[in-house]
Amino acid sequence: MNNTKEIFMAGLWEDNPVFRQMLGLCITLAITNKVANGVTMGVAVFFVLTASSFVVSVIGDSVPRRVRIPVFMLVIATFVTLVYIFLQAFFMPLSEALGAYVGLIITNCIILGRLESFSSENPPWESLVDAAGVASGFAFALIAMSVVRELLGFGTIFGIQVLGSGWTPWVSMILAPGGFLVLGLLIWVERAISPVEED
């Protein structure tokens, strides 16, 4: 697999981390009640995933197999902490909204999964493309979910009123049940567009 476009599209669509691989669902369910949160989390994960993929792919060969997981975790944790401090310093309101979830990117299985299964065994360029694809796929899923949830739950997009004042917000859309419902529906839509090939 060295076709750049193929690797990217696999992460974005065919192997979408949320809709196909069912990874990172905790964050997906928790923060997608507002589009701004979804976008921020998408960008944060994009940065952490591409940066740590690159680093791991560069140092991958010199890391002994038995300590690779601690090394991966250290690399991920470093970049996550950077994002956390950066948000606090320059995007205070977003940092307040996302709160603990930024720190939880460390345990996001999408990131560790990519490092373990791709970056550590592939050259830096391919790893970057793969990371960008998967991260875009994650961001796409987050934004798709948060658009539906914010629209129905608040009647707004990015905090701007979209549905008229006659709209009664569906409070449950903002809460956990709405998250599960929208996730299920979106997985259905995704699979209707490109059906899973049965073996």
């Binding site: 010199s62 002994p64 300590v67 090394v71 250290l74 470093t78 902490t81 950077l82 401090i85």
Partner: peptide, 18 residues
């Protein structure tokens, strides 16, 4: 020895940057 060295090295760089 190499295992420990790698871990210490990565941790040191990480701590320095942060």
């Amino acid at each position: 020895v190499w295992m420990v060295t790698v871990l210490v090295l990565v941790a040191t760089i990480s701590a320095g940057v942060l």
